[in-house]
Nucleic acid binder design. Structure first.
Lengths: 236, 236
DNA sequence: TGCAGGGTTTAGATAAGTCTAATTCGCGAA
DNA sequence: TTCGCGAATTAGACTTATCTAAACCCTGCA
């Protein structure tokens, strides 16, 4: 069943789409209801601005709002979020695979374009790439029906035992600096590595093809991995 | 010499870019000075709207304005126009060549995206395509330094003598309908054809690979061709 | 139980881009 | 030379998205 005809007739402004995306992102980070101030922080605008925008989103039926408490996405709001996510992640994948972008640099370009590519173009990109299930950071890409593939089970690199070979599956991120750091370290989805040392203050040292890398704990915590054995299984 | 750093620091709104593009397009159609009403027509807004926008563009140094007379692009305005043209035409070329779009359908998608692709992305697209000199309609693409390749000499199909084989070089257009018409007729840049008949009221019948096509004169006038002999020369 | 402080909302202003209605300008015809 | 008409501009209002300042709500601590 497809609801694709809806989005382009919905005609949300890019700004509104950004609010929906932000609510989705913050919500995914744990909170059930998303607060005005959390959104203000995330979007770098003032609280009154958020407050008035939330009222508009409520009128449009995209969020449920409880005064002084916060908002949640309605079913329709959820679909909008998933559509933007699909655009964003497919753009990232395309830029990386077909236009030779570094996977740590695609975020900004995708952020601007995601609001302006048609669903038609998005679908063509998906097809050209063979309908990939994940983007270059390992984040799952909603399919054309907007259902989000369940990512397989992963564990955080920070919790891996020394000596166990693992394969990087996904890099969680908000800002670009962490991605840059990891890209420079040669750590990206698909890379096999092995923790060789965990220092007292959380510095994790891992062996990767081509050398060793030391990572601060807060960076290591962004890396999701699976045991190498398990990864091999999936290849086959 | 490159001036590329300028555009993205100029930070024009998409709307302003559309006005610049419109002035460029109307100017290319003959007029030296572009009138308020011509712009209002072209952009489908009212004259007062254009008037106030032209004042802003003048303040930004993008147009020279003579009250009650019209505007011309300044040197900087010209560069903006060429940058947008480069974005637009490379996008069209890319969508057609790499994402299997029909060359008659790419216009709208490119119109939306041209304001949001970075120069970086534009350059990567150009490189991926081998720095093409023309877009799918045969329109010249400004290079990275924003100089516009001189298109070779062409003649209008409407003026071609019966029996002379020619090759289509370029399709001039404003709306999409003519492009659709020609695409459906199988006439596009690169196709070889021969005029077999010109009827009293300007209906032009041409033989193309795969059959014959009759075209109204106003459509035939949009088609620029070169003698087949000349075209072969350039291939070699 | 009440109040202080922090988060939220309301009120009112601003900037961009658009509109309609009213005014002004410029130029060709009488 | 002047009149009148069409084109251009000015005036003022509306919408979207933003801000600051002020008022309001809620809750945890005394």
């Amino acid at each position: 069943m497809r609801f694709r005809w809806k989005r382009e007739s919905r005609m949300l402004s890019a700004v509104m789409e950004d609010y929906i995306k932000a609510i989705y992102a913050i919500r995914s980070d744990g909170q059930e209801r998303v607060s005005t101030s959390a959104l203000a922080d995330y979007l770098d605008v003032t609280a009154p601005t958020v407050s008035s925008m939330l009222k508009k989103l409520e009128e449009r039926g995209l969020v449920d709002r409880e005064e002084y408490k916060g908002v949640t996405l309605t079913e329709e709001g959820e679909l909008v979020a998933l559509e933007i996510l699909r655009h964003h992640r497919l753009l990232e994948a395309f830029l990386t695979e077909r236009l030779d972008y570094d996977w740590a640099d695609v975020h900004d370009e995708a952020d601007r374009l995601e609001h302006h590519v048609s669903d038609e173009l998005t679908d063509r990109i998906a097809e050209a790439l063979g309908n990939p299930g994940v983007d270059p950071h390992g984040d799952p890409i909603p399919d054309a029906d907007l259902s989000l593939p369940e990512p397989g089970d992963t564990i955080r690199l920070a919790t891996v035992a020394e000596g166990e070979p693992v394969v990087v599956r996904r890099i969680r991120h908000q800002g670009d600096e962490e991605l840059r750091y990891l890209a420079d370290a040669g750590i990206r989805p698909g890379v096999e590595l092995e923790v060789v040392d965990v220092a007292p203050f959380g510095m994790v040292t891992a062996e990767i093809p081509g050398g060793e890398q030391s990572l601060p704990e807060e960076i290591a915590r962004l890396i999701e991995v699976v045991p190498a054995a398990e990864a091999d299984e999936l290849e086959a």
